[in-house]
Amino acid sequence: MIEASPFSAACGIIRIMNVSNDLQLELANVSLDYGARRVLAGITLALRCRETLVVAGPNGSGKSTLLRLLCGLQRPTGGHVFYQLGGTRYRPAEVHWLVGWVAPELQLYRELTALENLRFFAEVRGLRPTTAELEALLAEVGLDGRGGDLLAAYSSGMAQRLRYAYALLHQPPVLLLDEPTLTLDQRGTALVERIIARQRERGLTIIATNDPRELCWGDSVLRLGG
């Protein structure tokens, strides 16, 4: 069983009840077209809890698009994407809470501080973390002591670390990482490795990358774009 979030005692909107080992991701003949151009074609796969998949491929092969499908931000043109839990299938858009997503296109509020951002996203998720808990999360991603800074003053590497804090805030069973080490230094890369290793114990991870060094982070590799 996946542990409940440390904030879940006060969680009103989402009650994660026995998200157990039967968590499974299924893609059945998934395709996606942008106008006349087919970006994804006939993708079929099943991923079980504690598995890590790396999606690789050249620019424009549809890696980021595939991750957007998995978190319900886009719908496939053909085929189906399901998360299976407790014998029931859910479309990704029905279970946003299941997913933590880190991607270059993910932007948080530049006019708010890091702590204000995290508190806001916790509150809309129905969580009520204390300031100490949020500061601990920031420390975990290497932003200790910077929680009071406005995001506008963050470097790109710090903003990437904050994306991890945003994604891990609700301890999601599914972690989707698009270009996970983009703009991160060596310590940041080590942090990502630790996060992926921890995620193996509690859910499934999908990584979209072009970096050959990151291919070994997965149990299997899905190559897109021929």
Binding site: L73, H96, E105, L106, Q107, L108, Y109, F121, V124, R125
Partner: peptide, 13 residues
């Protein structure tokens, strides 16, 4: 425009 809508979509009802 600030591209924060995606983060909001994933987090809030």
């Amino acid at each position: 425009e600030a591209r924060t809508a995606t983060a909001l979509r994933l987090a809030a009802l």
